[in-house]
Design a protein around this nucleic acid. Structure first.
Lengths: 187, 187
DNA sequence: CGTAACATGTAATCGGTTACATGATTAC
DNA sequence: GTAATCATGTAACCGATTACATGTTACG
């Protein structure tokens, strides 16, 4: 169960469930996602099992915050996950399944790929913004100094390259489809 | 729900549940996966809703086969899925999360990436084998004639490119890690 | 005065995995 | 005889999504 380990990893720096949701989307967000309704019960479970410690802090706004932090036992759990083999969750890409069956509706192909291209280009732009920020913060990028930033940066590099090939692939599919039946259709 | 639509798409040619499992792994297998225990109840449901037709055929081996086929209503369901917007299931890549937190166990980084590289290289090889087969069957590849093969071929092209960038990325990560602390470690 | 952000949760449901159950035929 | 392939299913469980429930503070 990966969410468990992601929380244990993130909570090496203390945070509340609410914080975590924002931190997840802002860091591992390009390859992971979690709702608050999933985070809260998991935090409780991890605390019950002694992998997290809690303290309650008053909040300026709204109800009191429950701030969690990884315990030594939690840290150990994290390292066993890291020591194990790479975990492949069988990838399921529904939009590729749609592409596969597009011969059933060939006239939908061009608008479909154009929409796909727009979506991935937007995602690519958001990763590029992160890269730009990173470059500004650390002038030696991509030769970062410490280990702490190295691995997140690795994942960013892969995200950028993958999105680039997807956008290029969309463009090529569009070009091939246009070549097949005159450039004037389905706009 | 994508499995539903995948079955409706595949069953434009009649097949049994058992057949389907093999057909899925052999075609859309590089981006989708389904177990028999998931397929059988889904077939029943789709048949109950009039989207599939069944007939029972005796089998040479084992119990009688239930052969399904998409009905006109099923075909309509398929096209509404294809007519809709591209469906993104939020991608969750656990192995990238492991990379993200590798600073907790830096000495595990090299073996981790080597294992990752081996896994993806194997996947890439299997897609390349499919491409080779395809080239042999249709000498005009990649300029296939009909629409029927065009879209599956598009998905194959993307799979190949994505896996290539992942393998290259692994190699670069390995090189950078080796450069960081002498080439002789953690073999 | 309403909306957004802060902050915590529960309940119902769904898609998917793992394990279990059954039994025939074929190849070694 | 025993393992693999053919062929069908059910049940328990788990991870994740969606919808619901509650209440405060700050901003325009």
């Amino acid at each position: 169960m990966a969410l468990e380990h992601i929380l244990l990893g993130m909570l090496r720096k203390p945070a509340s469930g609410y914080d975590l949701k924002a931190e997840i989307t802002g860091s591992v967000g390009h390859f992971w996602h979690a709702e608050l309704s999933q985070i809260y019960p998991m935090l409780r479970r991890l605390e019950r099992d002694g992998l997290l410690a809690v303290r309650t802090e008053p909040s300026d706004k709204g109800p009191p915050r429950k701030v969690y932090e990884t315990t030594p036992a939690g840290r150990e759990r994290l390292t066993t996950w890291l020591t194990g083999a790479p975990a492949f969750g069988t990838e399921r890409l529904e939009w590729l399944a749609q592409v596969w069956f597009l011969d059933e509706r060939p006239e939908r192909a061009l608008p479909f790929f154009r929409s796909l291209r727009a979506d991935f280009a937007r995602e690519l732009a958001s990763l590029e913004a992160i890269e730009t920020y990173w470059k500004g913060a650390d002038p030696s990028y991509p030769d970062v100094a410490g280990n702490a930033d190295l691995f997140p940066q690795f994942t960013l590099a892969l995200g950028l390259r993958k999105l680039k090939v997807i956008v290029d692939w969309c463009d090529e599919c569009i070009a091939r489809l246009e070549a097949r039946h005159g450039k004037d259709d389905s706009r």
